[in-house]
């Protein structure tokens, strides 16, 4: 059987809210080392990966590897019934066709359980190599959210260029052009408010703003986001989920015809 317990439902609620518009369904692959997910958006230009490590859970048991096909909209409906501070337990028998979600309030005076029907989802598993990126930028996640939202009011695509001057986001559209540059800045006392630019070589890539905006739905998960860029490769936008793991969004760059 599979059983995983998290002390705060809020984490899972935020994760599912971050994914559900980009990917409607996907397989939660559970194994003794944790829960993972790979899912593409409907146009197949972006990939979401999720890794939740077994030791990040309060309790984790998985006797047999399983692939649980989840409709994220439906999972979201169920998670809306959990309080942010509720303890949440996910449970499934081996080869089950449903996933049980149990919510317990902090003082344990309210216990509810919901069964989510599982789906059979055929999905292609992609091999993502570990690699060195030309530029890795860590910035406040709220700053990333603001930049991509502001630029969306001007254009559809953004040119992201990392140089020793900083990371610049540029767009243009019918009403004009916009450029926003963030510099390496370790002045703020709080590490969460700092911007770190680790540059091996300058790089510039163009992306669809619609997707970058969608990734920002993960902002409530964590105060920092990491962007990894290399010429002609998908950008990686990564949000760490405390000690539990991380969610990564990969987006193919736009290239000249």
């Amino acid at each position: 059987m599979f059983e995983a317990r998290l002390p705060q439902a809020a984490v899972l609620k935020k994760l599912v809210e971050a994914l559900k518009e980009l990917v409607t369904e996907g397989n939660f692959d559970v194994s003794p080392s944790g829960i993972s997910l790979q899912a593409m958006d409907s146009s197949h230009v972006c990939l979401v990966t999720l890794q939740l490590n077994d030791d990040g859970f309060e309790h984790f048991r998985c006797d047999r590897n399983m692939s649980m096909g989840i409709h994220f909209g439906n999972l979201s409906k169920i998670l809306k019934c959990a309080g942010n501070e509720d303890t949440i337990t996910l449970k499934a028998e081996d080869n089950a066709d449903q996933l049980t979600l149990m919510f317990e309030s902090a003082n344990q005076d309210r216990i509810s359980d919901f069964d989510l029907k599982l789906m059979s989802i055929e999905s292609e598993h992609l091999g993502i190599p570990d690699q060195d990126y030309s530029a890795e930028v860590k910035m406040p996640s709220a700053e990333y959210q603001r930049i991509v939202r502001d630029l969306t009011s001007m254009g559809d695509t953004v040119l992201v260029s990392a140089t020793k001057e900083g990371i610049k986001f540029s767009t243009s559209g019918d009403i004009g052009t916009a450029n926003i540059t963030l510099r390496h800045n370790t002045t703020p006392e709080k590490e969460d408010e700092q911007t770190h630019i680790d540059l091996k070589e300058p790089v510039a890539l163009t992306f669809a703003l619609r997707y970058l905006n969608n990734f920002a739905k993960a902002t409530p998960l964590t105060p920092q986001v990491k962007l990894s860029l290399t010429k002609d490769l998908p950008v990686v936008v990564e949000y760490k989920v405390g000690e539990l793991g991380q969610v990564r969004f990969f987006l193919a760059p736009k290239i000249d015809d």
Binding site: V45, H125, L126, T157, P234, F250, L251, A252, P253, K254
Partner: peptide
């Protein structure tokens, strides 16, 4: 501008 599918960058594992 065009956009390749994400699977063009990562092979099947």
């Amino acid at each position: 501008m065009k956009q390749k599918p994400i699977s063009a960058f990562f092979g099947a594992s």
